[in-house]
Design a protein around this nucleic acid. Structure first.
Lengths: 340, 340
DNA sequence: TTGTATGCGTTATCAT
DNA sequence: ATGATAACGCATACAA
């Protein structure tokens, strides 16, 4: 066997046909006689031919590779999405080109590589969607976004049900007998924050309960602000018997505040979070929270992308996947008014 | 902005120079006057130019992408190696093309894509190295192997110290007062099995103890065989007071056998494994074992690969990284002869 | 310092 | 059913 890999030309020469015919054979295209087909295949095999993907892509073909942009792989959300996408890709026989978009990663590099080497792009971005919503790129390459925050944008997005999940949380607390339920909001710049808040409001209203604005405290998804907001709630004349934080991290802040007040979870106060990050199961007491279907978001996003690569218009522009309320030890039955 | 992305030709036309000059400017090559440089850069920026990587690769350039072949990402060993590699790549500004080489994944596809799209290939293969040791591919692309089994082959390999690790294990048991130490071997087809066994022998000899061949039982890395081997050891007239299994899974088999005999770990019998797979910390009692430096193997392998991509000969053809003995609850002091 | 010519391996278009 | 030709976008070698 020679050093330089065999090319279409090599096969064509040996088979006594044109490159074009060889190309057709190798791509299972119609318009080739059984005989030449067989002969070409044989020679290709003997020469151990494999196509050169750069050349193929350059000439307008597909590579069967999809690019995937993620922030650091450390996050459990991200790594689950990657797994999910990996499964969908595996089934379809595609491979994965992974961009870890850390700070000061040259963004144009990612665009450039994707356009040149991949057939489509999956954006997994917990935050800052605008940063990626680039009209030029969209015109050149099918793109799908997977993200947990229900951000708006012109790209097809796969996310999780925020509104309904939030209602489920409040209904869970109501079922436990809580009627004064505090809410720590999320970053108001993000759509999911509003959805989660609206779910809270509507669940209360649906239960015939008033919505007490004093019990609603603004937040920003940080633990520090969660701590402060919980303190505000605990210092009310009539503090709540349960607190729903718009994300787990803020809930951890609430944990701190509650413990600082000498109160116990869930005996004195129930707490619920949102996201089900890894630490949610590790803290004490383990946090009741809403599990984001990261794996499924990965598979769903990938399948949507694959269909777009096939040339189909995206079936949906906004896909919301159902979540699951994970009931752990931070929520318990209402035990009467608090004495602070 | 036009729909089709800007190319070198576009820039050249607008700048009134040749493609070649533009190429030089964009690649920071010498031989361009400051003026034309500035002008070209300006236009490139205005046109939002990004290079087409397929074209670049086809023309002999680099893509700054390295391919990585892994079996399913489920294994903690693999995912740690991926993280380690990711870090090294991130530092160097490269990206990762990931192949999940599941059963019936067309292997030629992976070769083909790598050759065409990547600058180098990192093989992470817990088993069956021969399957990948393909002379043709090696000639076309720098390749480095990361694997835990010390397999032999013509490719540069990064693995872990097996011999010394094994000695450390036995020394740990000796320090606890054990002198009859049973050994459950690994798959004899694999070099690491022999190294681990040799470490066992030499550690005993170095301590002035005889090597009792009865205490050495063949194994094959499976839990079932570990179970059987441990039974053989326990049924000896003079059973050992400690068992060293050549891998964690076999150690779990030994756990079963020991418990079946009504013995306790570590009170009646100490057990040590090898690998530190995820479950090692989950079983009861948590298993003392040798931790494979997966993350470091990933970074080291990547760095070696990067140097080869630079055109350097591999500094070493076989890199062994130190391991760490993780002492958990499955080993304890010797408490006198066993009564079975 | 700058430009020209050529080729990388494949696919698309259009002809035969 | 098969083939000739051009084109994809870039880099290399060499010439001016």
């Amino acid at each position: 066997m020679r050093n330089p890999p065999a090319t279409l030309t090599d096969i064509a020469r040996l088979a006594g046909v044109s490159k074009m015919t060889v190309s057709k054979v190798l791509n299972n295209q119609p318009g080739v006689s059984r005989e030449t087909y067989k002969q070409v295949m044989e020679i290709a095999q003997r020469l151990n031919y494999t196509p050169h993907y750069a050349a193929r892509k350059l000439a307008g073909g597909k590579t069967n590779i999809v690019g995937m942009v993620v922030p650091s792989m450390e996050s459990s959300f991200v790594s689950e999405v990657v797994h999910g996408a990996g499964k969908a890709l595996e089934e379809a026989g595609l491979d994965l080109l992974l961009f870890t978009d850390h700070l000061n990663y040259p963004q144009e590099r990612m665009f450039s590589v994707s356009r040149g080497l991949a057939d489509g792009l999956l954006l997994v971005i917990p935050r800052s969607l605008e940063r990626y919503d680039h009209p030029q790129l969209r015109a050149q390459l099918p793109i799908v976004v997977v993200e947990p925050l229900n951000q708006k944008g012109s790209l097809p997005v796969v996310c999780a049900e925020n509104y309904l999940s939030s209602r489920k949380v409040v209904e869970h607390l109501l079922a436990l007998g809580h009627h004064r339920i505090g809410m720590i909001g999320g970053n108001p710049k993000v759509k999911s924050s509003h959805l989660r808040l609206q779910g809270y409001r509507d669940a209360l209203s649906a239960a015939g309960l008033p919505v007490n604005e004093q019990l609603i405290r603004p937040g920003d998804f940080t633990q520090m602000r969660g701590f402060a907001a919980a303190n505000e709630l605990l210092n009310l004349k009539e503090p709540p018997s349960a607190i729903f934080a718009a994300n787990d991290v803020a809930a951890f802040g609430a944990y701190d505040a509650i413990k600082n007040h000498g109160l116990r979870i869930p005996e004195d106060l129930s707490v619920v979070g949102f996201d089900d990050i890894f630490q949610a199961a590790q803290v004490f007491p383990p946090l009741t929270t809403v599990h984001q279907p990261a794996f499924e978001m990965g598979t769903a996003g990938t399948r949507l992308l694959l269909s777009m690569i096939q040339g189909l218009e995206p079936a949906v522009n906004h896909l919301e996947l159902p979540t699951e309320l994970v009931i752990r030890a931070s929520t318990g039955p209402y035990r009467g008014p608090q004495t602070v």
